[in-house]
């Protein structure tokens, strides 16, 4: 029987953690952070959710299968590298749109890393928990 206090606070904390993980992802290029670290925080948030609720609950909440998220992450990273090919530059060269927003393909690449790590670690975690229950 899980305590009501733990469940309630867990949900609040999880929200903050997920927000923070996105923040780390976006600022990663200039300050400590990045896709890998952000993804680990997100996984820890969901681990908290598993403890507070259940693995089944988490599966319903993320809607997509973690394996699919992981594979699409690799796909996005690969895709971000293809841009450079159109400009006749080596695969995975960073292409930037500095004019309007500080955005570029490295950010897209990092999003791919985020999704790949998040999906992969979460899928193992969920599988282990479900396997043992």
């Amino acid at each position: 029987m899980r305590s009501v206090i733990f469940r309630t606070t867990a949900h609040i904390v999880i929200g903050i953690m997920l927000l923070f993980s996105l923040y780390l992802l976006l600022r990663g290029h200039n300050e400590p952070g990045g896709g890998f670290i952000g993804a680990l925080i997100a996984v820890i948030a969901f681990a908290l959710m598993i403890l507070a609720e259940s693995a089944e609950y988490v599966r319903q909440r993320i809607h997509f299968s973690p394996g699919l998220i992981a594979v699409s992450g690799v796909g996005i990273s690969l895709f971000s590298g293809l841009f450079a090919l159109f400009l006749n530059r080596p695969f995975l060269s960073g292409i930037w749109w500095k004019t309007s927003l500080p955005m570029g393909t490295p950010l897209l690449f990092d999003v791919g890393v985020y999704l790949a790590v998040f999906g992969a670690v979460l899928s193992i975690l969920l599988r282990i928990v479900e396997d043992l229950e």
Binding site: G28, H29, N30, E31, P32, G33, G34, G35, F36, G94, W96, K98, P102, G104, P106, D110, V113
Partner: peptide, 10 residues
């Protein structure tokens, strides 16, 4: 275009 060397390398 990044100040975080670790991330830029990655």
């Amino acid at each position: 275009h990044g100040r975080n060397i670790v991330n830029v390398i990655l």
